[in-house]
């Protein structure tokens, strides 16, 4: 007997899949016969520099995020305190909904020209604004895994065997979380690659110093071919990197 509801679900799934895939790949259709422009843009100094700034800052942000979320996930898993739920919301969900432009503005006021420490329009400014927006991805993966391990009771067994916190972290929590840390890193990296508003406000778009790939797209809207070309490069980089990270995680 044909299950009609099964077909309906497949058709509905198809709609979303089509929407998501077309949204990315229309870019390549739009480029059409202007592939020579893409090549030209790729070999221009400005774009090459933007790629270096984007990839290096996103990789650094991913590494800093993974290192920083480990102690935080430990505390949120093992310590009980008041307003823990609220703190978690502030660390995980809130940064994902807070407009990145506002984040940039906050940092500009806090660490900009008017404050004792002025790092506005520098490379560290990119790292800071990306870190705030992208860390929650690493955070949610790590905390979920630590809690899973805690529920399994493996940490209790380790403790009965005389294991202190240092060995618990190094021998149990981290080795059992490798895949989740890798997944957290790759999503953090991807989010950091795409972040633009906060970075633009706090770090600006100084070619060769603070101009990232999405900043090039945004600032070259008067020459759509360049914007399009850079977008193709950005999409290609991100998809390639994400597939690579997934492959690494599966190999482990």
């Amino acid at each position: 007997m044909k299950d009609r509801f099964d077909y309906i679900l497949q058709a509905l799934a198809g709609l979303l899949i089509l929407f998501m895939v077309v949204s990315i790949f229309y870019l390549y259709v739009a480029v059409g016969r202007t592939w020579d422009l893409v090549a030209e843009a790729l070999f221009s100094e400005r774009v090459a520099q933007a790629i270096i700034v984007s990839v290096s800052s996103s990789t650094l942000v991913g590494l800093i995020a993974v290192a920083a979320v480990v102690p935080t996930a430990y505390v949120l898993t093992y310590k009980e305190f008041r307003f823990k739920g609220l703190l978690e919301t502030l660390l995980i969900e809130f940064p994902q909904t807070f407009p990145p432009a506002t984040v940039g503005l906050v940092y500009l006021l806090m660490l900009g020209p008017g404050s004792p420490i002025n790092i506005a329009y520098t490379y560290p400014a990119i790292l800071i604004s990306k870190l705030y927006v992208a860390t929650p991805f690493a955070m949610s993966f790590t905390i979920r895994r630590f809690r899973e391990i805690h529920r399994s009771g493996l940490d209790t067994i380790a403790r009965t065997l005389g294991c202190g916190t240092r060995h618990l972290l190094l021998w149990i929590l981290l080795p059992l979380s490798v895949k989740d840390l890798a997944a957290g890193f790759s999503l953090t990296w991807a989010r950091a690659m795409g972040e633009v508003a906060g970075t633009l406000i706090f770090a600006g778009a100084i070619p060769g110093l603070t101009e990232t790939i999405p900043a090039v797209v945004l600032t070259s809207s008067s020459t759509p071919q360049v914007a399009l070309a850079v977008s193709v490069i950005a999409a290609f980089l991100s998809i390639g990197a994400l597939l690579f990270f997934k492959w690494i995680a599966r190999e482990r």
Binding site: S152, G153, L154, T156, I157, A158, R159, T160, L161, G162, C163, G164, I172, P175, L176
Partner: peptide
């Protein structure tokens, strides 16, 4: 006395072996 300092051996129902 804390868990790690009791020196009690424990075998849970699911044996709790470290899978890695």
């Amino acid at each position: 006395v804390s868990v790690e300092n009791r020196n009690f051996g424990y075998v849970p129902q699911d044996f709790g072996l470290f899978p890695h």
